[in-house]
Protein backbone atom coordinates (compact mmCIF):
# COMPACT_ATOMS: atom_id res chain seq x y z
CA UNK A 1 0.00 0.00 0.00
CA UNK A 2 1.51 3.38 -0.98
CA UNK A 3 1.74 5.85 1.90
CA UNK A 4 -1.24 8.16 2.25
CA UNK A 5 -0.20 11.77 2.40
CA UNK A 6 -0.47 13.41 5.82
CA UNK A 7 -2.60 16.27 4.56
CA UNK A 8 -5.25 13.79 3.40
CA UNK A 9 -5.50 12.38 6.91
CA UNK A 10 -5.64 15.93 8.25
CA UNK A 11 -8.62 16.54 5.99
CA UNK A 12 -10.51 13.66 7.65
CA UNK A 13 -10.07 15.03 11.15
CA UNK A 14 -12.76 17.19 12.67
CA UNK A 15 -11.20 20.56 13.26
CA UNK A 16 -14.19 22.23 14.87
CA UNK A 17 -13.79 19.67 17.67
CA UNK A 18 -11.56 20.98 20.38
CA UNK A 19 -8.24 19.13 20.39
CA UNK A 20 -6.23 17.82 22.26
CA UNK A 21 -8.02 14.48 22.53
CA UNK A 22 -9.02 12.86 25.85
CA UNK A 23 -6.48 10.01 25.78
CA UNK A 24 -3.40 9.68 28.02
CA UNK A 25 -0.04 10.55 26.45
CA UNK A 26 1.31 7.34 24.95
CA UNK A 27 -2.09 5.68 24.51
CA UNK A 28 -2.46 3.40 21.50
CA UNK A 29 -5.82 4.87 20.49
CA UNK A 30 -4.21 7.79 18.68
CA UNK A 31 -2.16 5.35 16.59
CA UNK A 32 -5.33 3.41 15.79
CA UNK A 33 -7.10 6.64 14.84
CA UNK A 34 -4.30 7.46 12.38
CA UNK A 35 -4.38 3.93 11.00
CA UNK A 36 -8.15 4.01 10.57
CA UNK A 37 -8.01 7.35 8.76
CA UNK A 38 -5.35 6.07 6.36
CA UNK A 39 -7.41 2.94 5.67
CA UNK A 40 -10.55 4.98 5.04
CA UNK A 41 -8.76 7.31 2.64
CA UNK A 42 -7.09 4.38 0.94
CA UNK A 43 -10.46 2.63 0.57
CA UNK A 44 -11.65 5.54 -1.56
CA UNK A 45 -14.77 6.10 0.51
CA UNK A 46 -16.74 9.34 0.56
CA UNK A 47 -16.89 10.89 4.04
CA UNK A 48 -20.66 11.17 3.78
CA UNK A 49 -20.96 7.43 3.27
CA UNK A 50 -19.01 6.45 6.40
CA UNK A 51 -20.63 6.01 9.81
CA UNK A 52 -18.40 5.48 12.83
CA UNK A 53 -20.25 4.00 15.79
CA UNK A 54 -18.72 3.55 19.23
CA UNK A 55 -19.71 2.43 22.70
CA UNK A 56 -18.46 3.74 26.02
CA UNK A 57 -14.90 3.85 27.30
CA UNK A 58 -11.66 5.36 26.03
CA UNK A 59 -12.30 3.84 22.58
CA UNK A 60 -15.81 5.33 22.59
CA UNK A 61 -14.30 8.79 22.21
CA UNK A 62 -12.61 7.99 18.90
CA UNK A 63 -15.40 8.77 16.38
CA UNK A 64 -15.91 12.36 17.59
CA UNK A 65 -12.52 13.32 16.10
CA UNK A 66 -13.34 12.05 12.61
CA UNK A 67 -15.16 14.18 10.04
CA UNK A 68 -17.73 11.51 9.11
CA UNK A 69 -21.17 10.62 10.47
CA UNK A 70 -20.33 9.69 14.05
CA UNK A 71 -22.51 8.07 16.71
CA UNK A 72 -21.34 7.63 20.30
CA UNK A 73 -23.81 5.15 21.82
CA UNK A 74 -24.34 3.46 25.19
CA UNK A 75 -21.96 1.02 26.88
CA UNK A 76 -21.75 -2.28 24.96
CA UNK A 77 -24.46 -1.39 22.45
CA UNK A 78 -22.50 0.02 19.51
CA UNK A 79 -23.22 -3.07 17.39
CA UNK A 80 -26.98 -2.82 17.98
CA UNK A 81 -27.07 0.80 16.79
CA UNK A 82 -24.78 -0.14 13.90
CA UNK A 83 -27.15 -2.96 12.93
CA UNK A 84 -30.03 -0.49 12.78
CA UNK A 85 -28.08 1.99 10.69
CA UNK A 86 -26.91 -0.69 8.25
CA UNK A 87 -30.41 -2.18 7.86
CA UNK A 88 -31.87 1.28 7.29
CA UNK A 89 -29.23 2.43 4.81
CA UNK A 90 -27.30 -0.54 3.36
CA UNK A 91 -25.32 1.80 1.11
CA UNK A 92 -23.49 3.28 4.11
CA UNK A 93 -20.16 1.88 5.32
CA UNK A 94 -20.71 1.20 9.00
CA UNK A 95 -17.68 0.77 11.25
CA UNK A 96 -17.84 0.24 15.00
CA UNK A 97 -15.04 0.98 17.46
CA UNK A 98 -15.28 -0.80 20.80
CA UNK A 99 -13.05 -1.72 23.70
CA UNK A 100 -12.58 -5.21 25.14
CA UNK A 101 -14.97 -4.67 28.06
CA UNK A 102 -17.40 -2.85 25.78
CA UNK A 103 -17.43 -5.57 23.11
CA UNK A 104 -17.02 -8.79 25.10
CA UNK A 105 -18.43 -8.13 28.60
CA UNK A 106 -21.47 -5.86 28.54
CA UNK A 107 -21.75 -6.17 24.76
CA UNK A 108 -20.70 -9.82 24.40
CA UNK A 109 -24.17 -10.95 23.46
CA UNK A 110 -24.36 -8.40 20.65
CA UNK A 111 -20.90 -9.36 19.37
CA UNK A 112 -21.68 -13.05 18.94
CA UNK A 113 -25.06 -12.34 17.36
CA UNK A 114 -23.66 -9.70 15.00
CA UNK A 115 -21.05 -12.27 13.93
CA UNK A 116 -23.70 -14.99 13.53
CA UNK A 117 -25.96 -12.69 11.52
CA UNK A 118 -23.00 -11.65 9.35
CA UNK A 119 -24.34 -8.21 8.51
CA UNK A 120 -21.87 -6.08 6.52
CA UNK A 121 -20.30 -4.21 9.46
CA UNK A 122 -16.64 -3.75 10.40
CA UNK A 123 -15.98 -4.12 14.12
CA UNK A 124 -12.71 -2.75 15.47
CA UNK A 125 -12.12 -4.08 18.98
CA UNK A 126 -9.36 -2.35 20.90
CA UNK A 127 -8.04 -4.82 23.44
CA UNK A 128 -6.04 -3.23 26.27
CA UNK A 129 -6.94 -6.01 28.72
CA UNK A 130 -8.58 -3.65 31.20
CA UNK A 131 -11.25 -1.03 31.85
CA UNK A 132 -8.98 1.96 31.35
CA UNK A 133 -11.42 4.85 31.63
CA UNK A 134 -12.85 3.70 34.96
CA UNK A 135 -9.44 3.09 36.55
CA UNK A 136 -8.13 -0.38 35.69
CA UNK A 137 -10.71 -2.95 36.78
CA UNK A 138 -10.49 -6.45 35.30
CA UNK A 139 -12.14 -7.14 31.94
CA UNK A 140 -12.93 -10.41 30.11
CA UNK A 141 -9.49 -10.21 28.48
CA UNK A 142 -7.44 -9.54 31.63
CA UNK A 143 -4.91 -12.40 31.83
CA UNK A 144 -5.19 -14.97 34.60
CA UNK A 145 -3.18 -13.83 37.60
CA UNK A 146 -2.87 -10.16 36.53
CA UNK A 147 -3.62 -7.40 39.01
CA UNK A 148 -6.54 -5.04 38.60
CA UNK A 149 -8.19 -2.52 40.91
CA UNK A 150 -10.96 -5.09 41.39
CA UNK A 151 -8.47 -7.99 41.52
CA UNK A 152 -5.92 -6.78 44.08
CA UNK A 153 -4.86 -10.38 44.82
CA UNK A 154 -4.58 -11.35 41.16
CA UNK A 155 -7.26 -12.15 38.58
CA UNK A 156 -8.88 -15.56 39.02
CA UNK A 157 -10.81 -15.94 35.75
CA UNK A 158 -9.58 -17.21 32.39
CA UNK A 159 -9.74 -14.67 29.58
CA UNK A 160 -11.55 -14.50 26.24
CA UNK A 161 -9.71 -14.78 22.94
CA UNK A 162 -11.69 -12.09 21.08
CA UNK A 163 -10.62 -13.23 17.62
CA UNK A 164 -11.37 -16.91 18.28
CA UNK A 165 -14.74 -15.97 19.78
CA UNK A 166 -15.68 -13.87 16.73
CA UNK A 167 -14.54 -16.59 14.33
CA UNK A 168 -16.51 -19.29 16.12
CA UNK A 169 -19.60 -17.08 16.20
CA UNK A 170 -19.52 -16.82 12.40
CA UNK A 171 -17.72 -13.65 11.30
CA UNK A 172 -16.61 -13.57 7.63
CA UNK A 173 -13.31 -11.89 8.40
CA UNK A 174 -11.20 -11.93 11.57
CA UNK A 175 -7.78 -10.34 11.97
CA UNK A 176 -5.50 -9.31 14.79
CA UNK A 177 -2.78 -6.72 15.01
CA UNK A 178 -1.23 -4.32 17.51
CA UNK A 179 -0.62 -0.58 17.57
CA UNK A 180 3.10 -1.40 17.22
CA UNK A 181 2.56 -3.15 13.87
CA UNK A 182 1.10 -0.08 12.20
CA UNK A 183 1.71 -0.96 8.57
CA UNK A 184 0.04 -4.30 9.08
CA UNK A 185 -2.79 -2.62 10.99
CA UNK A 186 -3.40 -0.20 8.09
CA UNK A 187 -3.64 -3.15 5.69
CA UNK A 188 -5.87 -5.28 7.92
CA UNK A 189 -8.30 -2.44 8.53
CA UNK A 190 -8.45 -1.82 4.80
CA UNK A 191 -9.13 -5.50 4.12
CA UNK A 192 -11.82 -5.65 6.81
CA UNK A 193 -13.55 -2.55 5.43
CA UNK A 194 -13.52 -4.00 1.92
CA UNK A 195 -14.76 -7.45 2.95
CA UNK A 196 -18.52 -8.05 2.64
CA UNK A 197 -20.01 -9.44 5.85
CA UNK A 198 -19.06 -9.06 9.49
CA UNK A 199 -15.37 -8.27 9.88
CA UNK A 200 -13.55 -8.11 13.20
CA UNK A 201 -10.15 -6.54 13.72
CA UNK A 202 -8.76 -7.07 17.21
CA UNK A 203 -6.21 -4.36 17.96
CA UNK A 204 -3.92 -4.93 20.91
CA UNK A 205 -3.13 -1.63 22.56
CA UNK A 206 -1.26 -0.77 25.74
CA UNK A 207 -2.91 0.86 28.73
CA UNK A 208 0.23 1.75 30.61
CA UNK A 209 -1.68 4.10 32.91
CA UNK A 210 -4.14 1.66 34.39
CA UNK A 211 -2.96 -1.83 33.41
CA UNK A 212 0.79 -1.51 32.96
CA UNK A 213 1.39 0.38 36.20
CA UNK A 214 -0.57 -2.09 38.36
CA UNK A 215 1.25 -5.03 36.79
CA UNK A 216 4.72 -3.45 36.74
CA UNK A 217 4.98 -3.73 32.98
CA UNK A 218 7.08 -0.60 32.71
CA UNK A 219 6.48 2.43 30.52
CA UNK A 220 4.36 2.72 27.41
CA UNK A 221 7.52 2.13 25.37
CA UNK A 222 8.24 -1.08 27.31
CA UNK A 223 4.71 -2.32 26.60
CA UNK A 224 5.12 -1.53 22.91
CA UNK A 225 8.40 -3.47 22.86
CA UNK A 226 6.51 -6.40 24.32
CA UNK A 227 4.14 -6.33 21.31
CA UNK A 228 7.18 -6.28 19.05
CA UNK A 229 8.74 -9.23 20.89
CA UNK A 230 5.59 -11.37 21.05
CA UNK A 231 3.88 -10.50 17.76
CA UNK A 232 4.30 -13.10 15.01
CA UNK A 233 2.68 -13.50 11.61
CA UNK A 234 -0.05 -16.10 11.95
CA UNK A 235 1.36 -18.13 9.06
CA UNK A 236 4.63 -18.56 10.97
CA UNK A 237 2.86 -19.03 14.27
CA UNK A 238 0.88 -21.98 12.88
CA UNK A 239 4.13 -23.77 12.07
CA UNK A 240 5.29 -23.57 15.69
CA UNK A 241 5.04 -26.71 17.79
CA UNK A 242 1.98 -26.69 20.13
CA UNK A 243 4.09 -26.10 23.22
CA UNK A 244 5.75 -22.95 21.81
CA UNK A 245 2.60 -21.17 20.62
CA UNK A 246 1.57 -19.58 23.92
CA UNK A 247 4.74 -17.45 23.98
CA UNK A 248 3.76 -15.57 20.84
CA UNK A 249 0.70 -13.66 19.66
CA UNK A 250 -0.49 -14.62 16.16
CA UNK A 251 -1.08 -11.52 14.02
CA UNK A 252 -2.57 -11.08 10.57
CA UNK A 253 -5.64 -12.45 8.83
CA UNK A 254 -6.96 -15.28 11.00
CA UNK A 255 -10.19 -15.96 9.10
CA UNK A 256 -11.25 -14.87 5.62
CA UNK A 257 -14.22 -16.73 4.20
CA UNK A 258 -17.24 -16.07 2.04
CA UNK A 259 -20.48 -16.58 3.95
CA UNK A 260 -24.03 -15.42 3.20
CA UNK A 261 -24.37 -11.74 4.16
CA UNK A 262 -27.53 -10.79 6.08
CA UNK A 263 -28.59 -7.87 3.89
CA UNK A 264 -28.50 -9.92 0.70
CA UNK A 265 -30.48 -12.80 2.15
CA UNK A 266 -33.02 -10.35 3.61
CA UNK A 267 -33.48 -8.74 0.19
CA UNK A 268 -34.42 -12.15 -1.21
CA UNK A 269 -37.01 -12.58 1.56
CA UNK A 270 -38.48 -9.16 0.73
CA UNK A 271 -38.78 -10.14 -2.93
CA UNK A 272 -40.48 -13.40 -2.04
CA UNK A 273 -42.83 -11.68 0.44
CA UNK A 274 -43.87 -8.97 -2.00
CA UNK A 275 -44.47 -11.55 -4.77
CA UNK A 276 -46.63 -13.56 -2.40
CA UNK A 277 -48.49 -10.37 -1.44
CA UNK A 278 -49.21 -9.57 -5.11
CA UNK A 279 -50.33 -13.12 -5.78
CA UNK A 280 -52.77 -12.84 -2.87
CA UNK A 281 -54.48 -9.73 -4.26
Amino acid sequence: MPPVHRSVVYDWLRHDKKFPHVWCPGCGLGILLGSLLRSLVESGLDKNQVVLVSGIGCSGRLPVYVDVNSVHTTHGRALTFATGIKLAKPELKVITVMGDGDATAIGGNHLIHAARRNLDITAIIVNNQTYGMTGGQYSPTTPLGAKATTAPYGHREPSFDISALSATAGASFVARSTVYHVTQLDQLLGQAIAKPGFGVVEVLSPCHTNFGRQNRLGSQVDMMKEFKRKGMRVERWRELPEGKRAESIPLGVLVDRDLPVFGQSYDRICDAASRRGEAGK
Partner: peptide
Protein backbone atom coordinates in the same frame (compact mmCIF):
# COMPACT_ATOMS: atom_id res chain seq x y z
CA UNK B 1 -40.63 -7.64 4.18
CA UNK B 2 -43.66 -7.46 1.88
CA UNK B 3 -43.06 -3.70 1.66
CA UNK B 4 -39.28 -4.03 1.39
CA UNK B 5 -38.76 -2.53 4.86
CA UNK B 6 -36.30 -3.88 7.45
CA UNK B 7 -37.63 -6.24 10.10
CA UNK B 8 -35.33 -7.95 12.56
CA UNK B 9 -35.71 -10.02 15.69
CA UNK B 10 -32.75 -9.05 17.84
CA UNK B 11 -30.97 -11.00 20.58
CA UNK B 12 -32.70 -9.12 23.41
CA UNK B 13 -34.72 -5.99 24.12
CA UNK B 14 -31.62 -3.87 24.69
CA UNK B 15 -30.52 -4.74 21.17
CA UNK B 16 -34.04 -4.15 19.80
CA UNK B 17 -34.20 -0.56 21.00
CA UNK B 18 -30.56 0.06 20.06
CA UNK B 19 -31.29 -1.19 16.57
CA UNK B 20 -34.38 1.04 16.36
CA UNK B 21 -32.39 4.11 17.43
CA UNK B 22 -29.80 3.33 14.74
CA UNK B 23 -32.55 2.95 12.14
CA UNK B 24 -34.17 6.20 13.21
CA UNK B 25 -30.87 8.10 13.03
CA UNK B 26 -30.57 6.85 9.46
Amino acid sequence: PARGYPFIQMEDEIASIGCCIGGSLA
